[in-house]
């Protein structure tokens, strides 16, 4: 009878042994930037192949669903940009892409709100994740502005009605002097250039921060104070349902920073 031993875990000699984190590096800004980037986000953190056991719950899926919807929003918007905002009025293909743009936006906000509720009730800013939470809030706010300028770019009576109603609200804030919702060209540029860039930037930083700090553990994991208790309480098919960790999911060992919270 032969016994198959599991392969040894890859050895990690600490940050100094990782590529790019070496002493005696030449004092160039690119070298320093590389050292800082690799130190903050080593490859195994940037593209992990396992997740903590508590991530095995549907509530943790909605961040990725939001990203998927955002990709469809950007791609369908890019196709519409090739032909112009009036394309969908005169072409069935244009109408198809306009509808795809609308419904992917609806799903984007739908998934993002469920993601927001889940993270709010988990208090996802715990364990030095304040910046992750804040960048998510900023991405949400910028998304609302992007969607609003999208409504103004429809080139129909709906956009005309929304812009004439919104101008009074915007003027009341004092922003109407430089942000004129009746200026179609300005609103279109905000919608297809500036605001998508801002949303994409906040989403990118948000995702990198999730990679750096990790996904927030459930409250039970924080209170347990150790991996054994944490695995027993949170490794189940849903949050709080006990079952062994399996597949891509592994037991979570709270960091000293998390347990100190």
């Amino acid at each position: 009878m032969t016994t198959t031993l599991p392969a040894p875990a890859p050895r990690d000699d600490g940050p100094a042994a990782r590529p790019g984190v070496t002493k005696g590096i030449r004092p160039t800004w690119t070298g320093r930037l590389r050292v800082r980037a690799v130190k903050a986000l080593p490859p195994d953190k940037l593209l992990p192949d396992t997740q903590p056991a508590y991530v095995a719950s549907w509530i943790y899926v909605f961040g990725a669903l939001t990203l998927a919807a955002f990709a469809v929003v950007v791609l369908s918007g890019a196709v519409i940009a090739l032909k112009g905002p009036a394309w969908w009025h005169v072409s069935s293909i244009g109408l198809f892409f306009n509808s795809m743009h609308l419904w992917s936006t609806e799903l984007f906000f739908f998934f993002m709100v469920v993601h927001l509720w889940g993270k709010f009730f988990m208090a996802a800013w715990r364990g030095r994740r304040r910046a992750t939470w804040v960048t998510g809030v900023l991405a949400f706010a910028a998304s609302i502005a992007t969607a609003f300028t999208g409504y103004l770019s429809q080139q129909n009576f709906d956009s005309e009605w929304i812009s004439t109603q919104a101008k009074d609200g915007i003027n009341a804030t004092g922003a109407g002097a430089f942000w004129n919702v009746l200026n179609f060209g300005q609103m279109l540029m905000w919608h297809i250039v500036l605001l998508p860039a801002v949303v994409g930037l906040f989403i990118g930083v948000h995702v990198l921060l999730v990679r750096r700090r990790g996904v927030v553990p459930p409250f039970a994991d924080d209170r347990a104070g150790g991996p054994a208790a944490a695995a027993a309480s949170v490794a189940g098919p849903g949050v709080g349902q006990g079952a062994p960790a399996a597949g891509l999911f592994e037991e979570h060992t709270p960091s000293s920073r998390e347990t100190a919270q």
């Binding site: 719950s57 549907w58 709100v113 849903g238 399996a246 597949g247 891509l248 999911f249």
Partner: peptide, 26 residues
């Protein structure tokens, strides 16, 4: 209707069990 659907999906996401794949070999 959209708000009601979001609440429904939120509750289901917490209540429904998550499918597990094969155990990871390490």
């Amino acid at each position: 209707v959209v708000i009601a659907l979001m609440i429904l999906v939120f509750v289901l996401a917490i209540a429904l069990p998550f499918p597990h794949g094969k155990r990871a070999r390490r």
